[in-house]
Amino acid sequence: MPDRSPSPHFATTRWSIVARAGAGAAPERGAALAELCELYWYPVYAFARRRGADPTDAEDHVQAFFADLLERGDIARADRERGRFRSFLLAAFNNFESKAREREGALKRGGGQRAVSLDGAEAERRLAEIGSDAEDPERLFLRTWALTLLEVVVERLGREYEDSGRGDLFAALRPTLVGDGVDGGLAAVAEALGSTEGAVKVAAHRLRQRFAALLRREVGETLVDPDEVEDEVRGLFEALA
């Protein structure tokens, strides 16, 4: 049998640090959770909006929810068993909302809680852009989740290229992330970069490989079991298709 032990990189995904009891010290868990929340608040916001909250309420609820989550820091055992951060997040938000309804009014409007750097106006622009009206809240959550994750990955990819002084190359090859073929062809890209078409082709291929590697890593960060990455990608794909 091949060695199936996960690579060291995956031994501690962000979500596994949070979800696995004893997987790390409490501060470490808190930091990992905060990082995840910072990246993935938008799907929760979209979900809240689609459930009927107006923009101000949604923003308040979402901030209060994350504040509560991060303050508690500890994840209930039942929740820990969830293998996916996104399933956890959705269930936890639902839970929070129903409790909030019970103690109606307890939620201070505009209480100034800033658990995550939620930009309400930007979130609204994005929501308007993707045309979410026809979708049920869960599906919208999943779709915005997939979009957010992809944005995180593409952005990281771009930063990586820039950091190594290849920002121009990234900008030129970015359209090839959806497959070969850019306006004017790779030959034009080659000319613009003062390179050869063959070299550009290789570079485009490598860009996609790098993207896939980052995608694998980022999806893995939201799971307990990195072996489920492909399953998760499939789920994301279905959400976007």
Binding site: V153, V154, P175, G179, F211, A212, E230, V233
Partner: peptide
């Protein structure tokens, strides 16, 4: 998407390519 990291890129096609590369 018109803006953001995915501006002008089809998310489904990007993910498809990613899945293929994966």
């Amino acid at each position: 998407p018109a803006r953001g990291a995915l501006a002008g890129l089809c998310p489904a096609c990007v993910l498809r390519q990613g899945a293929i590369a994966l």
